[in-house]
Design a binder for these strands. Structure first.
Lengths: 201, 201
DNA sequence: AATATTATTTATCGATCGATACAAAATTGT
DNA sequence: ACAATTTTGTATCGATCGATAAATAATATT
């Protein structure tokens, strides 16, 4: 049995994941430019040298917080499109789960990706670009899922898959703004139900 | 004939409206926190004391830029709901005009209100709140327009007007994020067409 | 021409920004 | 016990933040 590799030197005295999640919540709620190193160190209960030693820079910390958020969100949403369900049902389920996720009382409202760090100055340009890339990746994933459904005959041959994916991406991003502005869970679920009426055929 | 009131003192040497529009474009593109006084004075071609004398503060300048943006947007969109058209047609026209407005090549992409200054730190809290209030006002206006249509029998008695208004507000806000992320005019128009398929009955 | 009023330019204010230098403390390897 | 390595707390860096003081310039009023 190989012994557990023990890192030489003084051990870290804080929980790196807990600190990362504290930073995630701050970035989630206030955006990249709305959070200062001082805000972060206070919420993470560490001093700035520890932050830089553990995470590198404010930009790198935002990156890691964003990735962690995406991981948690995927865990909460699951992937309804890979379970053999009718694609319209999978879409409805995904929207419903999202409406719930966007209105959790123990977390900031809205989506860190869908409505996060939208507009930034020069300091936040990289963070905004990486966040936008995740939005585009989610939309590309929708194109794939809907394209698969079309290939299986679940959508008619004349379905414009990229436009349909863009429509649902639009709805998802709009839901995130609605949640951020204080819309409740019931309201978001009503919007999802109406949005599904645009489903083809 | 009353003579033109001449203000005493040295006259302002710059065009106040032109300076305001330069500030508007900056805030529009980068959000409240993404723009510094230095950025503003450079774009407005004035020094900071002139900015403060003419507009009061960064917050007041943002306020005025936001109001000016709203004025210009209303001018561009018109009010299709007050022209006796079928309400579905008015909605379609409004969405189409919006898709065009969000993708003007001579202006920043997206909407300064729909996706502006969403998340902010303590410095930008007021700006974010005022922007959010305009979003809510637009949604309230939608409730009124759709409610009027329902009263006129254009929408069935069981139509959930607040939810339908929330749906279209969601679409509008999502369109703004799509535009900001680089979606073209054709893509937005396709999304609008799909969104209208959710229209009741 | 003299005075009052406002705008402009230059220079700078204290506060905060993201990021680090440095030495003491805590661990592993020898 | 001692050296090597890493983290910690304190203190602070230069840059930039939003905002302003002071002196000068340009206008209207008298």
């Amino acid at each position: 049995m190989k012994p557990v590799a023990k890192r030489v030197g003084r051990p870290r005295s804080f929980d790196r994941v807990a600190a990362l999640e504290a930073a995630m919540v701050l970035f989630w709620r206030h955006g990249f430019e709305g959070v200062s190193i001082g805000d972060l160190t206070k919420a993470m209960s560490i001093n700035s040298p520890s932050l830089y030693a553990a995470f590198g820079s404010k930009n790198a910390l935002y990156d890691e917080a964003l990735s962690h958020y995406l991981f948690l969100l995927n865990e909460e949403l699951g992937n309804a499109f890979s379970q053999g369900l009718p694609v319209a049902v999978a879409m409805q389920m995904t929207l419903t789960s999202l409406a719930v996720a966007l209105t959790r009382e123990d977390m900031p409202p809205g989506c860190m990706i869908g409505a996060g760090s939208l507009r930034c100055g020069p300091n936040g340009r990289d963070a905004a670009e990486r966040t936008a890339n995740l939005r585009k990746a989610m939309q590309a994933q929708l194109v794939t899922s809907l394209g698969n459904a079309k290939a299986l005959g679940e959508l008619s041959d004349d379905t414009d898959v990229p436009s349909l994916a863009a429509y649902f991406a639009t709805v998802v991003e709009g839901l995130s703004i609605q949640a951020q502005d204080g819309a409740g869970r019931a309201e978001l679920l009503s919007v999802c139900a109406i949005a599904m009426r645009a489903w083809p055929i």
